[in-house]
């Protein structure tokens, strides 16, 4: 409550409920700025696995992320929500330097993993990406066999010494992604021949096969049916014991179910962040409330 924008000035919870129209002058489609802005809520935690400080991301002249500071705590699931195009994927990609390969993309600010600057000159991106795995928004299996898709990561990192070990890793990863039963008889078939949802689970299996410390998931369930979604959410719960997870999602229910903390992005800014329960029951910023109550798509 310490930092409020002009729109929020003098607003009490009661007033907001009764009189929203008056307090929501910001149109989400208005690409005008939200002005200089400081995030509402507590972006910092004590046991941060990764932390971002005043991160700015530009695509050429276009700024996609503005002054975002956010911690991701050890063994926590943080959900990132916000309208399409607000920069969720962009922010997620800064966490394992996947933005590096986009021509014209510039990242400023400081991002650390276990208190080490991942953008420092001596930081090895190969090692970083092995430690910070990623599941992409669109399923992107390799045009190779299902087995090879999962085994590739462990193989290049030398995680398995025998064929049996590798078989074990592949089976376990596929099982945890909830795909094993469906594909166990066709492990040598191309991964690209699977359905969209199966492909996405294959990509999840591929990501967890290298046992990263942090897993970034960009809308992992957008192509999945409710059963597979439930399986993935279960998996996320399981993984939380050992790993740290950042998940981008368009489903409020999913964010509410799987995450401990939620961050709401809008036009490249981190508007509000806090305990998931708090955010969903008691949002403090008008934009957050509008978004989670479905006033904007």
């Amino acid at each position: 409550m310490n930092t409020m924008t002009a729109t929020m000035d003098g607003a009490t919870d009661n007033q907001r409920e009764s009189d929203t129209a008056e307090k929501a002058p910001l149109d989400i489609r208005d690409h005008g700025d939200v002005g200089d802005y400081e995030t509402i809520g507590e972006p910092f935690v004590d046991n941060a696995k990764m932390s971002a400080r005043t991160v700015n991301v530009h695509y050429g002249d276009k700024q996609a992320i503005k002054d975002v500071s956010l911690d991701i705590g050890e063994n926590e699931v943080i959900a990132m929500i916000g309208p399409s195009g607000c920069g969720k994927s962009t922010f997620l990609r800064t966490l394992n330097r996947m933005n590096d390969i986009i021509p014209g993309c510039r990242v400023e600010g400081e991002i650390t993993l276990d208190n080490e600057d991942i953008y420092a000159g001596n930081q090895d991106t190969v090692l970083l990406r092995a430690r910070v795995g990623m599941v992409f928004q669109k399923p992107n299996p390799f045009p190779k066999s299902i087995y090879e898709n999962v085994a590739y990561g462990p193989r290049i990192h030398g995680l398995a010494h025998t064929k049996a070990e590798m078989d074990g890793i592949v089976e376990k990863s596929l099982q945890r992604a909830g795909l094993f039963e469906e594909v166990k008889d066709q492990l040598d078939k191309p991964g690209t021949g699977l359905s969209g949802g199966q492909q996405q689970r294959l990509c999840i299996a591929r990501a967890i096969a290298v046992s990263p410390e942090v897993i970034l998931m960009d809308e992992p369930c957008s192509a999945l049916d409710p059963i597979a979604t439930a399986r993935i959410e279960e998996l996320i719960d399981e993984l939380r014991e050992k790993y740290t997870i950042a998940i981008v999602t368009h489903s409020m229910q999913q964010a509410a179910r799987v995450s401990q903390r939620t961050a709401y992005f809008h036009l490249g800014k981190l508007i509000e962040v806090g305990e998931t329960k708090e955010i969903f029951t008691n949002p403090r910023h008008q934009l957050t409330e509008n978004y989670i109550t479905g006033r904007f798509g």
Partner: peptide, 21 residues
């Protein structure tokens, strides 16, 4: 497709491995 490169880099393949594998 660039998604194949991203996938390979995403699991920690080096640029050379990405290209040749």
């Amino acid at each position: 497709p660039p998604s194949i490169r991203q996938a390979a880099l995403g699991v920690g393949a080096s640029p050379l491995q990405t290209v040749f594998h």
